[in-house]
């Protein structure tokens, strides 16, 4: 039977390095994905995810299982992501408009359109990629706190209690935050939402 997160963390506290590796394997993908969608840069997301694990390890001796492990983990990740987004906000405004149009950036496989056009299945491929790009951009356009709430709610499937602790707000405020976020997404993705209903 797999040990719980809390048990693994208590084992790390007791000096078991292998338990830390198990936690790393369990949460590296969710963390990297969450951070990637928060900071919009894969390399930066991996650096931040490493920092999250480093902080968990450094805090092992003081760890007390007073809350769910994921609440603690994603609280660290969210704080790091929000700080990083705020630090780089103005740098992102300077992205050159002359940059080539790319697709497939989500997987880290950037392809310029002129290369992709040589693919016989390109039309379908482009439709799918454009669709993903619209969704990704709609998420990226959300204010940071709304974006974090949507990502934690939708992709990490954390409950309202956990997310409100991570974002340090009341459950009622969180529900309002999520409602506003979904309202924005509904508008931004209106063409896709309309297609979806057909």
């Amino acid at each position: 039977m797999a040990r719980s997160d809390v048990q693994l963390m208590l084992d790390v506290k007791a000096g078991d390095e292998q338990s830390f590796t198990l936690l790393l394997h369990r949460y590296r993908t969710p963390l990297v994905n969450f951070l990637y969608r928060m900071v919009r840069n894969r390399e930066q997301a991996e650096d931040l995810a490493q920092e999250v694990f480093l902080r968990v390890y450094k805090a092992r001796e003081d760890y007390v299982p007073s809350a769910k492990f994921t609440t603690w983990l994603f609280r660290i990740a969210t704080n790091l992501a929000l700080n990083s987004v705020r630090d780089t906000r103005y740098q992102r405004m300077e992205i050159s408009l002359d940059a080539p149009v790319t697709v497939g950036a989500e997987e880290g496989e950037e392809k310029t359109l002129d290369v992709a056009e040589k693919n016989p299945n390109i039309e379908q491929h482009l439709v799918e990629e454009t669709r993903k790009k619209m969704i990704r951009h709609a998420i990226e356009k959300l204010p940071e706190k709304q974006r974090a709430a949507v990502l934690l709610h939708k992709y990490q499937e954390l409950d309202y209690g956990e997310i409100s602790k991570i974002l340090q707000c009341s459950e009622s405020a969180l529900k309002s935050l999520l409602f506003r976020a979904y309202e924005t997404l509904r508008v931004e993705l209106a063409p896709l939402v309309a297609q979806h209903g057909k």
Partner: peptide, 9 residues
């Protein structure tokens, strides 16, 4: 619909 679109990423 929005929730299902988010699943596509």
């Amino acid at each position: 619909a929005v929730s299902e679109l988010l699943d596509e990423l």
